[in-house]
């Protein structure tokens, strides 16, 4: 693909920064702004900003979205299951999370082995870092389970998944990548956008939905 490359990017590359790293770092503010927008204006909460962001990058780093999503779902499912299994033992928080992490690791290892066995080499060759990132989801999930209950944790996990998938598509959108390479300064536009979002006091889309039954009666 022939795209115009901005001189500054060309300079970065000659200085030895990998091209892929440059793209990811330029993409980060875009995704972060996107998540902030979804939170403040649309009302999709997810697990804060860090978790969906890092999950998006984990998806980008796995070979194709489906393996990333599969690992994500396994992590959440095990988190759910282990809560029920561990409940009667009444363990303290950290040991409990440690047990969960152990089980998740073992299950993902099994998955990779099976994947290799079934010649799904894509799965087995997923690099370790995205896997580790997603395993850390367990703690976030468990903490939310305790704070807000199972259902809320599931909803938030689902929202995180949706945001991360959307983020994945944005970050792998050729047009946007082309724009960032050709005009890297456009990234600074996220600053005024975030200032506007940060001052936004209107109802969120989700709140129109939440209050729909009473808005007409006010």
């Amino acid at each position: 693909m022939e795209t115009a490359i901005s001189p500054i990017i060309r300079f970065f590359i000659t200085e030895g920064v990998p091209f892929q790293t440059i793209i990811l770092l330029l993409m980060l503010p875009v995704i972060a702004t996107f998540i902030a927008f979804l939170r403040q204006v649309v009302g999709i909460k997810a697990f804060g900003i860090y978790t969906p962001l890092i999950t998006t990058f984990a998806f980008l780093a796995t070979n194709g979205l489906r393996y990333g999503v599969a690992i994500f779902l396994v992590v959440i499912f095990v988190g759910m299951l282990m809560r029920f299994i561990l409940k009667p033992f009444r363990l303290l928080y950290l040991p409990r999370v440690a047990i969960m992490l152990t089980v998740v690791s073992l299950i993902i290892l099994t998955m990779l082995v099976f994947g290799g066995n079934l010649r799904r080499t894509g799965l087995a060759s997923v690099s370790i870092f995205p896997i580790l990132i997603m395993i850390t989801l367990v703690e976030k999930f468990v903490a939310t389970q305790i704070e807000k209950g199972n259902k809320a944790a599931l909803v938030l996990a689902f929202e995180t998944l949706i945001i991360s998938i959307l983020g994945f598509f944005i970050a792998s959108w050729e047009g946007l990548i082309g724009l960032l390479i050709a005009h890297p300064w456009t990234i600074l536009l996220t600053l005024p956008i975030n200032i506007i979002i940060g001052k936004w006091t209107g109802l969120r889309v989700s709140e129109y939905f939440r209050f729909r039954s009473i808005i007409k009666k006010l």
Binding site: Q40, G43, W200, T201, G202, L203, R204, E207, Y208, F211, I214, I215, K216, L218
Partner: peptide, 11 residues
Amino acid sequence: KNSQKLLGMNS
């Protein structure tokens, strides 16, 4: 217009 009367999370 009515929704202006409501207090949302942002506000």
